[in-house]
Design a protein around this nucleic acid. Structure first.
Lengths: 214, 214
DNA sequence: CTAATAGTGTCTATCAGACACTATTAG
DNA sequence: CTAATAGTGTCTGATAGACACTATTAG
């Protein structure tokens, strides 16, 4: 039996509830985040999908489970942001929230029902449980990742034209990105498929995919 | 009374124990990290100082308390790294560990007793509870912060000579840093005190402190 | 032809790396 | 003087920003 320096066993320590809350980001015309309506509890505002951690469960698994149950969404690979630990944060009691972010192509989020919706992520308004702060952290995380690598979250289907990659990165960055510089920076991290796309007006474009090897 | 979508109350959820574990870093001849010997429990190897979270306590407060109790160290401003959530990580049971890092000047760590010691942080060896991984994350965090700003953790006492700052940053980076480039990069973020230090051999050096305003 | 998109040439300003030089002190 | 440390001048190569140009298509 484990006892600490004061003779207490592990069971003597009161324990907090531990929840995961996830900002599911996607990009269509702008960056958007998935919010859900509260359940049967008293704080029934809009919030991020989340769940309490089940016994022995990994955090990432709890995230995927909560997305499936609360929003009918197949999550991909959640990343941990940080723990929100304000004891007054949740009126229901002492709850630690481990904030996560997951990035999902918009096509996977088409039929959400009336308990879930997509909102503009950079003007998300007041969500319950300080979830606006999680969205802000998720946006910063995504911008950081997209600053140096081509579509690291895999939102585009390969093969894609450079114009499509450029537009995606502009939406994530929230500002215009120089077209020629963008091309020169990204090209070494892409590989051409050899094909060209001759769909619309203008010179046919090479098609690329993200280069894997290193 | 809160009930979730399955009618369970908050108390119906089994809860994990939540611990904080902290890599206390300092720099003398090299980067070092504080480790402590295990308590009365069965896994009595060397580990990072840590503690279970007390009811209603903030994580940062638990870190400062554990440093005081376990190592007699006055911590400063712990930063959160990430949560280690492997259910098999701790043989005592289901324990989430919120890893932290704190940076403390070496002078505050002189009298540690026989239950605490400083070890070379980049060759820390096997610690209990996967604490080696926390040390690695803490080192990466510190190197990242020292890459762009002069002594962000405040390890030097102002005023200091540029040579001292340069040496500190070299120890953190773990490699030689070009002296002239370092000077030109750091100067805009420093302010001269006007004084000169004429202690030893060579041309007297200007004394600086980190520039505060923005 | 024009409009639209793809892709390149090239100038400039900045900056890190590199090296060498000057400046000022102790002894 | 030499050794040691402080500080500067300057060249080079890489790169981001900027702008203009060429290339190729639809209609």
């Amino acid at each position: 039996m484990y006892r600490d320096s004061h003779g207490r066993t592990l069971e003597d320590y009161p324990r907090p509830s531990v929840a995961v809350d996830t900002a599911v980001l996607t990009v269509r015309e702008t960056m958007e985040v998935l919010v859900v309506r509260g359940g049967s509890d008293d704080a029934a505002g809009w919030r991020l999908p989340g769940s309490f951690l089940h016994p022995g469960e990994r955090l990432a698994d709890a995230v995927l489970r909560s997305l499936r149950e609360k929003a009918g969404v197949q999550g991909l690979s959640p990343a941990q942001l940080r723990v929100f630990d304000d004891p007054e944060r949740d009126p229901r009691g002492w709850v630690l929230s481990v904030a996560h972010v997951d990035v999902v192509p918009a096509e996977r989020l088409h039929e959400l029902g009336d308990r879930a919706q997509l909102r503009d992520a950079s003007a998300v308004g007041d969500l319950a449980f300080q979830h606006g702060a999680i969205v802000d952290a998720a946006l910063a995380w995504l911008r950081d990742r997209y600053a140096t690598a081509p579509d690291p979250a895999g939102l585009l289907h390969a093969p894609f034209r450079l114009r499509e990659l450029h537009g995606l990165h502009e939406k994530v960055a929230g500002r215009a990105l120089q077209r020629d510089t963008f091309r020169r920076v990204m090209l070494p991290m892409l590989e051409s498929t050899g094909e060209v796309e001759r769909g619309g007006v203008g010179k046919p474009a090479q098609l690329f995919r993200v280069r894997r090897a290193r």
